[in-house]
């Protein structure tokens, strides 16, 4: 099972340091991503603090069922991703492939569910524009954030799914060994995308439920 020979990349002296380096680099990128979404969050916070009522009215129209299903899907995918990472670290190849596959499938399920939800939203003309049904005007602001936030999150998730599928293929064809540093970075990124959703869910779906 010691097929780790091809895993070491220039310029790292050994695989342990390389894994640490990839993990560190990914965390740095995530710190960057935190600030990326931070710009969105601070804008939301500013507007919500000025338009409390409008955000409640608008938030009541978000599709809570789709949103909840998607939360469960994504939380589960984080679980399967962690199992995949642990399997990879322990060099259990079959389990790595299996759980990585499940993770990608759950990611796709999320996107499908999101697509159905978007269709419902558009049926109700909840995209800001001339036919937008709600008032006061700041409700359009809430829905502006809804589309921007979920859209950017979906792009991140799509990128995550693509990376997982590529890595899965490379593992399957034994191009790179599962025990290398690749899974480290992939897993951390996936969990980050999940974390973003954990914050978005209460902001977009739970406003104005009571």
């Amino acid at each position: 099972m010691s097929d780790t020979a091809g895993a070491l990349q220039h310029p790292w002296p050994d695989l342990r340091m390389q894994r640490a380096g990839v993990g560190l680099g990914m965390w740095m990128f995530l710190a960057s991503e935190v600030l990326f979404f931070g710009g969105l969050m601070v804008s939301y916070a500013v507007y919500r603090s000025f338009n409390e009522d409008a955000f409640r009215i608008a938030g009541a129209h978000a599709q809570i069922v789709y949103g909840s299903i998607n939360t469960v899907i994504l939380l589960t995918s984080s679980f399967t991703m962690t199992v995949a990472l642990r399997a990879a670290t322990a060099n259990v190849r079959q389990a790595t492939l299996l759980f990585l596959g499940i993770t990608a499938a759950l990611g796709i399920a999320f996107l499908v569910c999101k697509g159905l939800e978007y269709r419902e939203d558009l049926k109700e003309h909840l995209f800001p524009g001339p036919q937008f049904p709600l008032s006061p005007p700041a409700t359009a602001m809430f829905w502006g954030f809804y589309w921007a936030m979920t859209g950017i999150h979906a792009v991140h998730l799509t990128a995550g799914i693509a990376v997982v599928l590529v890595v899965w293929t490379l593992f399957k064809r034994r191009v790179i060994p599962v025990q290398g540093s690749t899974m480290e970075g992939v897993a951390i990124y996936w969990h980050f995308v999940d974390s973003v959703w954990i914050v978005l869910f209460p902001l977009l779906y739970l406003a104005g439920r009571s």
Binding site: S43, V46, Y47, F50, N51, A54, F127, P128, G129, P137, A138, A140, M141, W143, G144, F145, W147, A148
Partner: peptide
């Protein structure tokens, strides 16, 4: 997002700043 998709993020008419 505002210019292309019409999301009123900085649009004063929807409470934007």
């Amino acid at each position: 997002a505002e210019r292309f998709f019409g999301l009123p993020i900085f649009d004063p008419s929807a409470g934007g700043d």
